[in-house]
Amino acid sequence: MTPPPYAALLGIAIEAEGDGPPVLLLPFGEPVLGRPGFVHGGAIAGLLEMAAIAALDQALQAEGGGRIKPITVTVDYMRGGRERPTRGVGTVTRLGTRIANVEAVAWQDDRARPIAAARLNYLIERP
């Protein structure tokens, strides 16, 4: 999957790829800064979105591909994102004929202590 321009704007890189969904890395820097000392919640939402799309794209490719459109995105913020890299990964909860339910989680130092999580629902248009 070719990362979209928005992923490049955020500076997102694929950190780990294996059998499962890829782990994405969002570097810290002025372009993602929110209130002083913290990553902007919108940039964290962007990372979660890109992680969700990467996971969904991988699952969809295994079934012949298709186009996706976001319907709803809900983000919960648990902790402030501090001045260091943030990682994110998505999980496809259900891949239906027309709808996909996806979850994504973001963390910094410890994956067991997420800084944010999202639920994303997508409309799927299969070829």
Binding site: T2, P4, P5, Y6, A8, L9, L10, H40, G41, G42, A43, A45, G46, L47, E49, M50, I53, R67, P70, V73, V75
Partner: peptide, 24 residues
């Protein structure tokens, strides 16, 4: 802005910039 696009095939913005706009 072209660099905020989430789907290059359509040119539609990603969700992230909209979330940021609405958060602000």
């Amino acid at each position: 802005a072209a660099d905020q696009v989430g789907d290059p095939s359509t040119g539609v913005l990603a969700s992230g910039p909209i979330v940021t706009l609405m958060d602000m």
